[in-house]
Structures are given as C-alpha cells and as structure tokens.
Computed example of a mutant assay.
Amino acid sequence: MSKPPSLTLPDCARAYRLRTGRGDFAVHEARPDTEPRGTALLVPGFTGSKEDFIGLLEPLAAAGFRTIAVDGRGQHESGGPRDELAYDQAELAEDVLAQTAALGNGPVHLLGHSLGGLITRAATLRAPARFASLTLMSSGPAAISESQQARTKLLIDALTVLDMEGVWRAIQEHDREDAADATTPPAVREFLHRRFVSNVPEQLIVTGRQLIDEPDRVDQLAAATPALPKHVLSGAVDYAWPVPLMDDMAVRLDAQRTVIDGTEHSPNAERPAATAAALADFWSQHDGHPGTGRTQN
C-alpha cells in the first residue's frame, strides 16, 4: 500500500466533501494563487486514499493546476454500502464521471493510480469528451502479476471470514518486515491502520477481483480516444505490473511515457516533487498554455 510522506495538508489545500449526483465523496483540494490553468482529478488505488497524493498537492498548485484527490466509494472517509454490486467497475466509473461533473470548469485532467487506472480507463471509455487528458500511473493493461494475484486472493479470502481489524492483524503478521519498518513515522503507521479498517470490506473484495480478472482493454481505449492526450507514468520497478508491460501499453496508446527514477509502485508518494513536475509538464502541453519544462525522471 502507498505510504504518504506526510499527513499535513499544505496551506493551499483543504479537506471537504464533494457533493455529486451520486453522493458525497471525501476530497482534498489544492488551488493555485492565480486563475487555474486546468483542473485535475486524482483517483487512488487498491487500499489507497486521497492521502496518497498529499505530496503532489502543493507543487501542482504552484504549477497552476487546481488539484482534487478523492476517496472513492467505500474507501477510507467516503463510505459506501455493504453490497458487492455497488462496487462493480461500471459503478465506480460512473462515480468518477459524477465527480468530474461536480468540479465544473470544463474538461478535467484525469489520473488513476494502480486500481484507479483501471477505473479511470473505464470512465474515459464511457465519456472521453469529459477529459482533457488521461494519465495511467503505475497501472497496467490487464490483470496484475501472478504473484500479486496470489496475495490479493489471500486478502479476499481473509475478508470473507475476518473483520477488518482481524484482516489488518493478519496482514501485519504476513508482512513482518514492512510492519517493522522503523522509517515509517508513528503517525503514518497509525494512519495506515485507521485507513485500512475504515474501508468497506465488500469494496475491497470486489475491486480485488477486478485486479485479478481485468481484461486487456488497451486497444479499445486507443480506438475510442484517438485525440485524447494520454500519459503512462510509473516507477523504475513495479511489482503489480512489470515495467515492460507499461512500456508496451504506452506504445499501443500512442501515449507519453515517463519513468520516475528511484521509485517503485507509488512515485506519487516516493518522489512527489519529480512526479508532480512530470504531471505538470504533460498537462501544460495540453491546456493551451506554454509548458513548464521538461519531464523529470
């Protein structure tokens, strides 16, 4: 799971609940001091949340972008029903479209991290005209790697027989090295626990199955969005989708490709300044404004 580098919102950001036609969603929003040059919506991954993007908020606002990070349905502070049907990928894609509509100000730069990439891909296929661009961050063409499928199946099995606190304890026992990582600040460690147990278990079960069963829809996306600017961004190493798969996906999508050196599955949390620079550079190429510089790797 992603570990945010800090839990403190910058002065340019605030937390609130975004009211949409499909319910309210917990968000963090950062605004530039001047008129925004664009609006971006950031969708987190499996077991993630809006906090995974905290490190991006200030530099993206400084680059001129109004930036909104969201907790999806059944994630962390957004809440959701105890009904598996509510978390079908089509339902989550409709949530993204509703969030986009609630933001106003025309087409939105859409970003999906990991599982969020699969959800934002589905949303883009439904209504490509709603978006100014699509960035798939650490998200691949189809199902996750076999090793990660095995881990996800274990989690799904645990969720069917244990409560959330019991599942958390089982994860800590299974991943002892990560649980004992002394570099994780106590406040972040406590947050990771609180975030996990606040997830709706049915959401994790259904989205976990999506990670295991997702078909390759890259060619479908390419055919449906020939004019939409696309960006594939990842770390130099990825355990969920091997980096060569993302390289190939970028070619198939005719997408810009960025690799953030020194990072793995969560460049947004591991090197937020470099990641934000790459995002701002890409968005600036497609908003009618002059660019902010070269992509940083």
Rank of each mutant, 00 (worst) to 15 (best):
K153I: 10
F191L: 11
V43W: 08
R217A: 14
T39P: 07
T100E: 08
R252E: 00
S139D: 02
L134C: 03
E173K: 15
G117P: 04
T135R: 06
L7Y: 00
A222N: 15
D181N: 15
S266Y: 05
G166D: 11
R19M: 08
S139N: 08
V96R: 07
A236G: 12
M246C: 04
D287A: 00
T292N: 14
R130G: 03
P290N: 12
H286I: 06
R73E: 04
D95F: 09
V259Y: 06
P10E: 05
D181Q: 11
G38Q: 06
H76R: 11
C12A: 05
D33A: 13
A277R: 13
Q148R: 11
D216P: 05
L56V: 03
A132Q: 11
T184F: 07
A122C: 01
G74L: 01
G291S: 12
I119H: 05
A277Q: 12
L155G: 05
K230C: 09
T67E: 03
L279W: 10
P5R: 14
E173C: 09
M1H: 11
E94R: 14
A123C: 11
V251K: 15
A223P: 07
P215C: 08
G112W: 05
A179R: 14
A86G: 13
L245F: 00
L9Y: 10
G45I: 07
P272T: 01
D88M: 12
H289S: 14
E94T: 06
F65W: 03
E214D: 00
L92Y: 10
F282M: 01
D163P: 04
Y87G: 05
L41R: 07
Q220N: 04
S78G: 06
A129W: 01
R217W: 03
F282A: 04
G140F: 07
A40H: 01
H265F: 12
S49K: 06
E165Q: 12
F196P: 10
A102T: 02
G117H: 06
M164S: 10
H109N: 12
R257F: 06
R209V: 03
L204P: 09
R17I: 03
L136V: 01
A250N: 08
T47F: 15
E173F: 14
S284H: 11
A123F: 03
N297L: 09
D216H: 02
A277S: 13
T8P: 02
E35K: 13
D287N: 02
S49L: 00
R19Y: 08
P186G: 13
T275E: 04
G235E: 00
E173P: 03
F196R: 09
A222R: 15
P290T: 07
G117C: 10
I212A: 01
A13F: 01
H174P: 09
N297F: 11
H286E: 08
G166M: 02
G38A: 03
I205D: 02
D248T: 12
G112K: 00
V232G: 02
R195G: 06
L253Y: 00
D178A: 15
L18A: 09
K50G: 13
T295A: 13
E29N: 05
A180Q: 14
A223D: 13
D24F: 12
D178C: 14
D83L: 04
F282P: 08
F196S: 12
L155R: 13
G117K: 07
L103I: 09
L159E: 11
L118D: 00
A250T: 09
V237H: 07
G74R: 04
L41K: 00
D157M: 02
Q256F: 13
P44D: 01
